[in-house]
Design a protein around this nucleic acid. Structure first.
Lengths: 336, 336
DNA sequence: CTTAATTATGGTACCGTTACCATATTATCA
DNA sequence: TGATAATATGGTAACGGTACCATAATTAAG
């Protein structure tokens, strides 16, 4: 593979001159420029950005550390990231942690070695030592989807608390009292916020005695299992609030197995929508977050951090996207 | 950020010795090793793999160039790639081309500059100059999901032709004659193969006169639009065969808008399943491909190509995964 | 016409690692 | 006991670029 030296030699100039042609920097005569470009084409020379990075200390690469690219929320978010990154001249390395702190740590270590210019992180736990580590190495981070206890980071997320409140209130207004929330891990801010919003709504409507929620996992299995457990109790809920799309789908499939009809026997509502491009007949009443916009915004902030390197320390932002209640069939109608 | 020299200085040894400690290579006394490791921890030294790459000419990074990470087929495939890559010690850069040859070219150029060790490519067109370019630069490629006219590449894909045949035959066995196939772009091997399998099935059952197919795009909009066009003709089909999941969902939504009932008024079948984790009530009769396995296998082949660098030229493989017919409601029952 | 500014090009060193070779010390063996 | 091998460590150069400084040639200015 030819190097800048090969090109220089063949064109009869110094390597630095070729560098100037490639980067359109400094002074180069038209005559030399033409000659050099001709040689570049002839040899099929492609600049080695590794070498460039070593000098410039920039890799033009960012990393997106999420739990699972397979989750529609995250893959749409990833698309928002990729589009914004490409526009800004960055490539994106994708890492799946499956909510495992250990896997997150592994990746952060690798990414530090790779000297990525910045990291978009969905942290596995609310107290993130990853952030401290990255700070120590001057690697900009933007936290997505969740917030953390550590201060001094940019955060871009949806409004889980308000969303949960709205969804719960919606059910209450329909006449539901026994509403069970199947939340995610209690180490994750979204799970906690959703519980908080739910509790607040129950409390505001004097339904404290009916407050009933579980922390589990953000997975189909967790949703299904918790649903089975709930329906094995004496008091059955009249409504189930799934902590995210996977949990809710798990709940629905468990209910179907048990022969319980939705929404006739029990109402089901959910956090996170299934993209309309994937469901031929949207059925679930949901709180919908804008994953594409979240990914895009987070990337823009990260890029600005990367570029502003040594500038005046701009204040850290917390961007909270509003969420939207979408009413469909699964929540059913008024309850007496 | 500390370098190997800083560590060496502080530990009172030469940089090369630190290198030996990091890489567990050569001879290092226990005493020195302990000392060096202590300094590494103290300074928070993280090896710079950029510099390492410059020497070793390995980046431990591969790229996955797909059309759209948002498509469930590709995001599950991406997960298979990421898992296999991580296991082999590689990171994955994701690139979305949206079926645009221009965007593909852009990315290939960037990836060459980045000196990725290999590329997994879903080519936009059947004659791929990307492959020639990569070959010229000695960058291993594995083609996924589609085949190309150029020889001398590894290909990992699903069996579109047989799948389309099975699906068409299934409809024919139900008594359908007027079966319309809404395929993808005619520049893409899967679209062409699906048409071929469909035609073959029609032909084998003496339904040549009913052969009716369209090349469009692999998108919801394309599916919806073609469906509207078809139903504005005098002769309406009794079954629609969507070229992929997005096309089929587009078809379903167009049918719903027109008040045409599925499967009562028209049967609908599709290539590519929606993962069960995303659909609470699977409805569509489909041919299902194994995207995770495809991604995984392709990555394994790519990694072996990368590692075998200068070995005897192993013959190129074409791995064709079998597909599976999954019968659900959308195809309805026997037709008289 | 001298001086200064602009244009054009090149030399050298360095970014952070590691391969290769050299050297020194200790252990092993005939 | 001297020779050989194994162990332990370091010096130097190179990977492929570019920043910085220097120099030469041309143009503009006074």
């Amino acid at each position: 593979m030819p190097t800048i030296h090969d090109v220089a030699k063949k064109a009869g100039v110094a390597p630095i001159t070729v560098s100037r042609v490639i980067n359109n920097s400094g002074y180069v005569s038209d005559h030399v420029r033409t000659k050099v470009n001709a040689v570049i084409d002839e040899l099929g020379y492609v600049p080695n950005v590794i070498a460039r990075s070593l000098k410039s200390k920039r890799t033009n690469t960012i990393a997106l550390v999420i739990t699972d690219i397979t989750n529609p929320f995250f893959n749409i978010l990833a698309r928002g990231v990729e589009d914004a990154a490409f526009k800004a001249g960055f490539n994106v390395i994708i890492c799946n942690t499956d909510e495992s702190q250990e896997q997150e740590d592994n990746y952060i270590q690798l990414l530090l070695q790779k000297r990525v210019d910045g990291i978009l992180l969905v942290p596995a736990e609310t107290h993130s030592q990853s952030i401290e580590l990255l700070r120590k190495h001057n690697t900009p981070v933007v936290i997505i989807d969740r917030y953390v206890e550590n201060g001094g980071v940019d955060v871009v997320r949806g409004d889980s608390e308000s969303g949960a409140y709205q969804l719960t209130k919606f059910l209450i207004d329909l006449g539901h009292k026994r509403i069970t929330l199947l939340s995610g891990p209690d180490t994750v801010s979204t799970s906690i916020d959703r519980v908080r919003g739910y509790k607040q709504a129950m409390c505001d409507h004097h339904l404290n005695e009916f407050v009933d929620y579980f922390y589990g996992k953000y997975s189909q299995e967790s949703g299904a299992q918790l649903t089975r457990e709930i329906f094995s109790r004496k008091e059955k809920p009249t409504a189930i609030f799934g902590g995210n799309n996977l949990v809710s789908i798990g709940a629905l499939s468990a209910l179907r197995q048990m022969g319980i009809k939705v929404p006739d026997d029990v109402a089901v509502v959910s956090f996170d929508d299934i993209p309309e491009s994937l469901s031929y007949d949207p059925f679930m009443t949901v709180i919908s977050q804008p994953p594409y916009a979240i990914g895009q915004k987070a990337t823009e902030i990260l890029v600005s951090r990367i570029k502003n390197d040594q500038d005046v320390p701009v204040e850290f932002q917390e961007v909270v996207f509003p969420v939207e209640l979408i009413v469909r069939e699964s929540s059913g109608g008024k309850v007496n």
